[in-house]
């Protein structure tokens, strides 16, 4: 992230966020609704713009491309995860070998850590149990390795390399 974003860009970010939420809950294109939403979003954004850390800086076109790439990687992993779970559930002998492994992440932004933890939870055989500073503790349904480095390579690497590009 390049320096601190300006107040305007923070405000625009908060405004867009509130407006999208408003539109999502009303889903109508009537002028009255849209204008009311815009006013409410503007007032809320005025009170809360200091909370948005990145401002509009996360919306460079390159980062949007990475977001789309992340989405597809995630979708693919989600489907794979489900086929994996389905296979384990159906097979009569229940082939599981569970355990909890730990690994270290390089991400610094709290939001990026949250995204990574959620992605890990939804991908093959792993549920994030806890995140303490930069250590992730992951329950793995079929532990292949206990070594933190290798666990990192297997569980988090494909997501984290994209998240690092987005959140730096």
């Amino acid at each position: 992230m390049s320096g601190k974003p300006s107040a305007i860009s923070q405000w625009v970010y908060a405004f867009l966020l509130f407006f999208v939420v408003w539109y999502a809950f009303t889903t109508s294109l009537e002028w009255a609704e849209l204008i009311t939403g815009a006013i409410v979003a503007a007032i809320l954004a005025f009170f809360t713009y200091k909370m948005s850390k990145g401002g509009m800086t996360i919306y460079s076109p390159l980062k949007l491309i990475y977001l789309v790439q992340y989405f597809f990687v995630f979708l693919f992993a989600l489907i794979k995860a489900n086929l994996d779970v389905a296979k384990r559930v159906i097979s009569p002998s229940l082939p599981i070998n569970p355990g909890i492994v730990e690994f270290k992440t390089q991400l610094t932004s709290e939001f990026a850590k949250m995204v990574l933890a959620n992605s890990i939870t939804l991908t093959p055989g792993t549920v994030t149990i806890d995140v303490i500073d930069d250590m992730f503790y992951v329950h793995w349904i079929d532990v292949e390795t206990e070594d933190p480095e290798q666990a990192y390579m297997k569980v988090a690497e494909p997501f984290e390399k994209i998240l690092l590009k987005i959140y730096g």
Partner: peptide, 24 residues
Amino acid sequence: LGALGIFRMPDFYNRLQAGTKAST
């Protein structure tokens, strides 16, 4: 399949795995 996982898995954490992923 998610509910079947909840039903069949041996302990809480594995139920969590099956339940979360498949039902999501």
